[in-house]
Design a protein around this nucleic acid. Structure first.
Lengths: 114, 114
DNA sequence: CTTATTGTTTGCCAAGTGGTGAACTGAATG
DNA sequence: CATTCAGTTCACCACTTGGCAAACAATAAG
């Protein structure tokens, strides 16, 4: 069970940073070593490794070291769990929208203006 | 334009807390005043108001005060923007999955075990 | 007017985050 | 063996977060 350490808290926290989201986007195109991942960013290796650690502990990525290079890859299953929470909430809202159609429509047009 | 202060950073950060996610869930069922929202949680009003402020600054909710009660409501459009980012990433991954079908399938089964 | 209700502000604190530079480990490479 | 290369660890720092208690509005109810 300690392997199943996935939580929405850590997943959303991991996504709440543009550096980490960029790493996710990059890894979507395929695995990569740490140095290649770190190159686009204007920060030292220690700082970047902290971001990688946050991503790994959130379960969104996995890493494996072979020789002197650590290769990182995405874990799409855990990313989709965060997506699932959001879409469930939207479904909940849509259910309520049927009940309160008129009211909610007013809120939405108000949102358009803001 | 200063009203259009939506960013994925603040949105995901707002979602990275179970109290705030519970508030979102509650508001999906309809607007509510602060006191009713705060009741389920074991924390003082000041602490809870900080959570509300995070949610409001993230654009996920809006609040309005009339008389002595502040009413909170959801802003579904901004919630769906976070969902959009996630589903776009998944789409990106699926595009790559076609190219690297065999490799990625190995990673997925490995994910099943972990 | 008096009092209870509903926020709101202020000051404070412990813990966490995001970065730095410097020193170090361990695997290639010449 | 000596050197570079990729990553890691460590100590440190400024800043933010998430909670508290207490004092302070401002409105509603009696």
């Amino acid at each position: 069970m300690e392997n199943c350490s996935f939580s929405l808290d850590t997943a959303f926290h991991a996504l709440a940073d543009s550096t980490r989201r960029a790493v996710i986007s990059r890894l979507m195109k395929g695995p990569a070593p740490v140095k290649e991942l770190a190159e686009p960013f204007d920060m030292g290796l220690p700082a970047f490794l902290k971001h990688l650690r946050v991503l790994e502990e959130s379960g969104l990525i996995a890493t494996e070291k072979s020789g002197r290079v650590r290769t990182c890859r995405i874990r799409p299953k855990h990313l989709s769990e965060a997506e699932t929470w959001l879409s469930e909430q939207r479904a909940l809202w849509q259910a309520g929208a049927d009940r309160l159609a008129t009211y909610v429509e007013n809120q939405m047009t108000e949102d358009d203006d803001e």
